[in-house]
């Protein structure tokens, strides 16, 4: 692996760890979502420390160049992530609808009770 690429990968890895650690510190990412980002981080570290490992795996899977394997796996990972987000958004939307309905009905019931008390 050329030294320029190693430096670029190292810088992006530092930035990546910094961003993820901020999210962990401020608890803006739940633990079960954090697992995904940690796996990505481990993958980046592995590629930096043992570049031959990526090459060997890409050869094993029949890719002509390691970069092709990285590109394909990135696309699949992004697709998986988008699907997971869509699932989570739908779930949250359903929860929102339920909350709005129940809260609005409770408000109505409170109004009735207040009127009865008067």
């Amino acid at each position: 692996m050329p030294i320029q690429l190693k430096i670029a990968l190292l810088i992006s890895l530092i930035v990546y760890i910094f961003i993820v650690s901020i999210s962990v510190r401020h608890k803006t990412i739940r633990i079960n979502y954090l697992i995904f980002w940690c796996i990505i981080g481990i993958g980046m570290i592995t590629a930096l420390i043992i570049p031959d490992f990526v090459k060997k795996i890409s050869n094993l899977l029949g890719f002509k160049a390691p970069v092709n394997m990285l590109l394909v796996s990135s696309i699949f990972m992004i697709l998986f992530l988008i699907h997971d987000f869509t699932r989570i958004i739908t779930k949250e939307q359903n929860k929102n609808i339920l909350l709005i309905q129940e809260l609005s009905m409770l408000k109505k019931r409170i109004e009735i009770l207040e009127k009865e008390e008067k």
């Binding site: 609808i97 709005i100 109505k108």
Partner: peptide, 13 residues
């Protein structure tokens, strides 16, 4: 006689 939804849910909601 009415219920005020605290946010817009659309016709279905």
């Amino acid at each position: 006689n009415h219920i005020n939804l605290i946010n817009n849910l659309g016709i279905g909601g």
